[in-house]
């Protein structure tokens, strides 16, 4: 087992640096991207990939099963909660007109919203600001 240690440590070091690069990519993306939804895309990198790299590095260096379980729990919680917040933020951003339409290629949601607003009778209370026709 002892001759395996430097190899494991080296792999862990590589994982560490990759995770750091992921987080840096997120920071640069937050700075450089033009609108809210593309910034959300950049912000997911440390949430999922960066944290996965760090968790793997921790599992490789600690070599103890219960700590590996804890580290994986951290990552699993992050995987479960990141989509929730991304969904809420994206929805609020779309509804409060933070979408930059000049950088959009296609907006499929707008078509659906138009169709529903046009034919809609199902949930009129959601369309309180529309003229009832």
């Amino acid at each position: 087992m002892s001759e395996l240690d430097p190899i494991l440590d080296g792999v862990a070091a590589v994982f560490l640096v990759i995770g750091g690069l992921m987080s840096l990519a997120a920071g640069v993306g937050l700075l450089r991207f033009p609108d809210l939804h593309s910034r959300m895309h950049a912000a997911t990198k440390p949430q999922v990939l960066g944290l996965l790299m760090f968790v793997l590095a921790a599992a490789l260096t600690w070599r103890s099963w219960e700590l590996v379980a804890i580290a994986l729990l951290t990552w699993g919680v992050q995987i479960l909660t990141a989509p929730v917040s991304a969904h809420m933020v994206g929805r609020a951003g779309y509804r409060s007109r933070h979408v930059r339409r000049d950088v959009l290629v296609v907006d499929e949601l707008a078509r659906a919203v138009d169709r529903i607003a046009h034919e809609d009778t199902a949930r009129p209370e959601l369309d309180e600001d529309r003229p009832s026709s």
């Binding site: 995770g19 997120a26 809210l36 949430q47 921790a58």
Partner: peptide, 21 residues
């Protein structure tokens, strides 16, 4: 505000990554 929220979220996550490292 939403941009700020995302950035704060990322900050928190990177700080906990620092602790892990």
């Amino acid at each position: 505000v939403l941009d700020r929220v995302i950035a704060v979220d990322v900050t928190l996550l990177v700080v906990s990554s620092m602790l892990l490292v």
